[in-house]
Design a protein around this nucleic acid. Structure first.
Lengths: 204, 204, 204, 204
DNA sequence: CATGAATGAGTTTTCATTCAT
DNA sequence: AATGAATGAAAACTCATTCAT
């Protein structure tokens, strides 16, 4: 029936979709989340406005998909780290470094929180975002627990500590946004050390 | 006509102004920062749209004033704490508790970061906000330094640690936004302990 | 508090509202119901597009209000006729004449049916429209019953006959739309005669 | 290549064409005439948007063809009835019954009147539709005249009465649209009786 | 001061139509 | 023939801001 390669079409579609999403997060990083229009996104992606609507039902859907992918990607990353054969301290350091190095992480952070509030966004979306956030806390809590068994991480409820760790990282990514100049260096090492127990940490 | 009236007028004006600003932050907390209109603010404050423009030149001015007051208030609070005759640990605890207890702190946090980033907001505003943020880091750094002298706080550059402390608090306030249910308790005590040195605190 | 006359404001609002609605039905009569834009309506009313939205939440609301008023007005008219001290035949004639003489009746007729279908319109609206239509059948049925008692109207279920009467009038109004040229005169007298019993009327 | 194939191709084309038109009227019945898009029609027909354009030059052509076929079919039907060897009353009854039984008749009725009025549709189309409508009045007028000769139909100008008859039927089909629940039965018999003279009708 | 009507410039969204594959 | 991506133009809708009262 169809004279075109269905599978290839699917791939092209996914490629375009991803391209639009990437352009969206990039332009949001430049213009600020609240003030990006579909027109901005389309221009950034080099496609027409109408075409963006070919891939996404609405602006909200773009945000939702962006969050879905961002959170899922982050979750996969954290899980992968958690599964490695490494001391917990190194794992935490790897997470910090990766997240702080990532250029757009602050945009995701703001996006998450923009989506979680806002009457505009549906309950459905809010639930999804919160659910994924909570789920992504799991691997970090595991790492914390591992570190506690190893004696390298401070005592306390692992999930609570994981939340502090993630919140701290998130709080810090916000300080890395363009236009924000904090007069101090932000170092993954410094972040991790707060969670480390014993003389090694204290006496550094 | 009489100075009495002028003075009273001033008071009335200030009262209205403050009321509009409070209503603004409240409605922003409900509808999301990006999507509050002047109409929303006016409705929330129980005044007319036109009347809002009697007190503020523009929407941006509302945001700017909101930030100015929020940051100034926070700065005063932190300075006051820093000046008290207390162990550093208690001071940090006091800051954490106050900030985490405050209902709208997360909205201010988002507002700050929204303002700092968006291309929309003027350089002027961005500079002001960043300047105040940096200034507000000072008292916290002092407390950290005091704690290090007392031996209660972990070693490291005081300003850097202050930034971590503030970022962590900010990151945590975001988790307290309505519609967000993190399955963990957030405790000021837990936050402070990360910054405390010594076996009592870290190895408890 | 308010330095303006509230009551007068209310009156002005109602006046503008009515003016926009009138302009809407007029322009719809010219351009066709499906193809009137808010811009057309605004232009016809001599106001800005934004101002139309000051009075109506959406295009659908304009349609809904138009229908509400049209049907209510028609209902009042029919009830008034039904209450007069006249032979039933004269009442039917009065209704036919008025309805056929009215320039925009066909537009209302189409609007009613456009609204009653269309997935777009809410169930709520559909129910309202159908409810009013049914209610408006009542007075006509009364007239029919009166005529039957007087011996001037053909026998049969009064409500059924009323439905036929109204449907015939509606069907005929559609033939009076501009651009439609039926090669025959449409006469209220001819319409009414179909419902009249007796040799004088039917065999004339 | 062979004439066989060419012929078969023609048949296939005609089949597809008819299928698309049927789907169009069906979806228009569901979504409302004004709000069906080519996409809706394509989806309803189970073909691609592009493919619809292989069969029709434009959306307007779909409407035009739909009307052409609908009116032509109706005309053929009425002519056939008019030519039968039957009393006029039976002919009228047959027409009423057929038209009222037809599921989509109301959609055609609305389509006809939408087309006749909207400024959007070309003069050409309007003329065609009105021309066919008028032509289709002919056979009905003939039946009426026949009935008058037989003494079974009320007196009056046959074309005028034909117009009333058709308008009544059209008005009634509109009451049969889905979502419309008139609390009365619509019976072909009741319709026809209005046009019948003499004791048979009157005393029923 | 207070009000809310009015505006215009944007933004989102829709959709008929074209076109490469 | 068949597909659905891409486009552009138009339509719906929003909203900061101004202004007469």
């Amino acid at each position: 029936m169809s004279p075109r390669n269905v599978e290839k079409d699917q791939q092209m579609r996914e490629k375009r979709l991803a391209h639009i999403l990437e352009s969206a997060i990039e332009i949001m990083a430049v213009k600020g989340i609240g003030s990006v229009s579909i027109g901005d996104i389309a221009a950034a992606a080099g496609v027409s406005v109408g075409n963006v609507y070919h891939y996404f039902k609405s602006k909200d859907e773009i945000f939702a998909e962006l969050l879905r992918r961002g959170q899922t990607g982050y979750g996969a990353f954290v899980s992968e780290i958690a599964g490695r054969q490494l001391p917990a301290a190194d794992k935490l350091r790897a997470i910090s470094e990766a997240w702080l190095a990532l250029g757009n992480s602050w945009a995701y952070t703001l996006l998450i929180h923009t989506a979680r509030m806002s009457e505009t966004s549906t309950d459905q979306l809010r639930r999804e975002v919160t659910g994924r956030f909570t789920a992504n806390l799991g691997p970090v809590a595991e790492i914390v627990a591992q570190g506690q068994r190893e004696g390298s991480v401070v005592p306390g409820d692992p999930t609570e500590l994981a939340l502090y760790f993630v919140s701290l990282i998130q709080g810090l990514t916000l300080q890395r946004a363009p236009g924000v100049e904090v007069p101090v260096g932000i170092r993954a090492e410094g972040v991790v050390r707060l969670f480390l127990a014993g003389s090694a940490a204290r006496d550094a």
